[in-house]
Design a protein around this nucleic acid. Sequence first.
DNA 1: CTGAATCCCTCGCGATACTG
DNA 2: CAGTATCGCGAGGGATTCAG
Lengths: 123, 123
Amino acid sequence: MEKFIIEHKDCYIDDDTSPHEVCPMVLVQKILSGKWKILILWYLVNGPLRFSDIKRNLPNVTQKMLTNQLRSLEEDNLIYRKVYPVVPPKVEYGLTEIGNKIIPVLKTMHDYGQEYISDIKNE
Amino acid sequence: MEKFIIEHKDCYIDDDTSPHEVCPMVLVQKILSGKWKILILWYLVNGPLRFSDIKRNLPNVTQKMLTNQLRSLEEDNLIYRKVYPVVPPKVEYGLTEIGNKIIPVLKTMHDYGQEYISDIKNE
DNA sequence: CTGAATCCCTCGCGATACTG
DNA sequence: CAGTATCGCGAGGGATTCAG
């Protein structure tokens, strides 16, 4: 919970009894904030991938940003990072247990995105 | 679709047949990017609210930012803005039709947030 | 009450180059 | 292949003031 010292006053939506409680929505907002986070997660749904695999499918991300976002997701325990001591280096990223639990969120997002697109087109 | 001229190359996840197609996940990412968006939407789930009502429950947001985020959500057609010609001014914000469709996403997010919190606590 | 207008600054993000 | 290291820009965000 280190990173998520969230002031309860950030959000009065969940009228939690205890003060200084974490608001779930604020938490999710923080976890998913970042230009490439949900795309990375979405891409890992089908199984672990190597760094280059992820990068290949997110052509507009720079190495720095990809590393950055992966580290952040790793800190939040959504993904794991496994280094194979081989040469050339091989690093694998995959969803953790708690990372897998976010899949429904991603799926719902994807459904909404498609619905949004078709709704707009039909105007 | 004005705002969402999304290069297909941003995302190879949905292997759409047509090039320059919009990736649903990129779309959702753009729609929800912003520090207060999902909190505002989540708060409007229970019905329309006045500006001051929203502000009261998001104590750390400034007037400028709240206005800013509301305008953005309005541009994306997620919320409507209704001005009552009275004095003092009364402005009401509520979910549009396409805004209502995002509720499942918010609910799933909220569930995940709670699960995340309890999982962390049990470590 | 609900804004708009300013000023200002952090930091997210990108471009580029270098390493084991 | 999978990273670090630097530099720097610009947007996102915050504090304050003014207005209808």
